[in-house]
Design a protein around this nucleic acid. Sequence first.
DNA 1: CAAGATTGAACAGTCAATCTTC
DNA 2: GAAGATTGACTGTTCAATCTTG
Lengths: 165, 165
Amino acid sequence: MSTTASPELDPLDVAWIGMLASDREAETWKLFLETARLIRDHLDSQLTREQAIGISEFEILAHLHNASERRLRMSELSRLTVAPKSRLTYRIDQLVARGWVVREECETDRRGLFAVLTEDGAKQLIAAAPGHVTTMRKVFYDQIQDEELAVFTRILTRINDAVRG
Amino acid sequence: MSTTASPELDPLDVAWIGMLASDREAETWKLFLETARLIRDHLDSQLTREQAIGISEFEILAHLHNASERRLRMSELSRLTVAPKSRLTYRIDQLVARGWVVREECETDRRGLFAVLTEDGAKQLIAAAPGHVTTMRKVFYDQIQDEELAVFTRILTRINDAVRG
DNA sequence: CAAGATTGAACAGTCAATCTTC
DNA sequence: GAAGATTGACTGTTCAATCTTG
């Protein structure tokens, strides 16, 4: 420690600064992570407060609603929501308990199960959607200008592809 | 249900489509959430696998390292990491158990506590940083072109501000 | 043996209640 | 009473182990 000239710059600091610190790179990265967490928490709070449904549950109902015959295999839901299968099992259990989803067996592959949206589930989704969309627009979509949208989407798509390898 | 002309378009579908579906708005929103989750999971896996440290722990060590005297109040750490105080207490407990952080009392305000980075903690951070930064660059920063960076940062900053109200 | 899905145990996160100091 | 921080109970997540069918 005492062999360096400047007392504030020990070897650890130098290594760290060379790696990451203080420039746009680290700032951009931090901003991205922070914003993603903030906005998801914000939307989750809004849904929980106004509709007593979490954003994860909402997303599952939305995926089912968009699917053909309002049903999806567990594996497919797992892919779509970027979640491990065990989490899906847990969440579907809750949605079944709430009466918003039912499980049905797959005729052609007896290993498989479908999660199927019920009428009540669809009603719940429709009830929650307007508030969710309004809030999302306010804090997300309305913050992106028309000329910026293509750039934003392009960057996100590239990152997505890079992560997936 | 039987009073509408088209059998595939019941009232629920109409309401849903009017709200959200099928256009760039929903796509952009989904892409953002999905990408954010994917990339954080990816970086967390890399750190856990190669350095036996989670990304949340890494972030805390990094904040402490950047701070003056390598110490921060719990409240301040809570703000910086956008995490509830109770989570910080929990994580700092773990970091203390690992010998990477110590708690110190605040002289001027006896309610307050500092989390202080130890030498071992700094070494761990420096050991983990290169792999983390390399991975981050590969999947994140290198995917953003120079001309795009300003737009990207601007959008994220606006969203951040909008969420914070 | 591989794939679809669930289970149980261990780990992590959240919220309200609490304790201490301002 | 309000702010800094911790605790405890509850909810949510993960991972390996398991069960069943292909």
